[in-house]
Amino acid sequence: MPIDAGTVEKIAALARLELDPAERERLVRELQAILSYVEQLQAVDVTGIEPTSQVTEGDPPPLRADVAGPCDVRDEVLAQAPDRDGDYFRVPKVV
């Protein structure tokens, strides 16, 4: 599937990545090269094959019992927040 500048623009917006025109052009080329390469997967017969999203075997650890534990990282985290307002994180207003 060919990828064009508009598509790159769209996915960059979805991924919240600023793009300048030069980078957009470069990315069209690079992503096109990678996507042409992965095109080979279209040739694989996957009829009736279940997708693998995890590869663990055996039993997982038990689910967590519903017991509240200590939450004491606020100060350590807020101290290194890029911006804060008292005990809140602060961000530019959502437009």
């Binding site: 992965v38 997967l41 279209q42 694989v44 996957v46 094959i49 279940e50 997708p51 693998t52 999203s53 590869v55």
Partner: peptide
């Protein structure tokens, strides 16, 4: 599709 091919590889 990649996840399905992953099944085959595994």
């Amino acid at each position: 599709r990649a996840q399905k091919v992953r099944t085959l590889i595994r």
